[in-house]
Amino acid sequence: MGRCHVLIWLRRTFGSSIGSKALMACTGLVLIGFLFAHLGGNLLLFADADGAAFDAYATALEHSPLLPLAEAGLALLFCAHIVLGVRVQRANREARETAYRVRRTHGARTPGSRTMVATGLVILLFLVAHLYDFRLCRPEGDSLALIVRERLASPSGLVLYGAGVLALGLHLTHALRSALHTLGLHHPRYEALVDRASFLLGFVLGLAFLSFPLVFFLGGAA
């Protein structure tokens, strides 16, 4: 297959509605995996009072030679997921130029499925603020655990991180079942199970990430 044929194949496959959604589903599933890893690291904030465990983990991560590669990969995944999401949403908006005067659901939509675009936008804004807080503009040499605790203990931290992780949880309640369906993974026997697992994933991850701003705001940074 020549280079030209490969380009045609790539354009035809991933330029199609199904192909671009399949890519979006794959990036989303990998990002769910990242969220579990991120949560695992964050839970070290609860391991001790002085944050030594979390700081040790953060230091090990920062000195890892694989960190630039992992960060580049994550950035690529996020960008691909966002760009594909915007593209799909734009095509979907263009597909109905005149809105219905009255719109009533037939009962299949869920709060998560209805708000995928809105929660996606909130997550994007939250992501920028989150990177600004702890990756791009944090003071050199200070304990990261202390910086995190102080930020989350503030009212603005509670509002920002609370809203961000609640949007993330709601987004995830539809994400898993939608991604699997888009990749063609569907069986009537497991349909209800996948729906429940998707809801549970959003609920558990949302609540787990919400615990950090809640605990530090209510308990103070110390």
Partner: peptide, 12 residues
Amino acid sequence: FGGCTNERECQA
């Protein structure tokens, strides 16, 4: 046509 976001309104 738009793309499917798996809301299942079509089935309903």
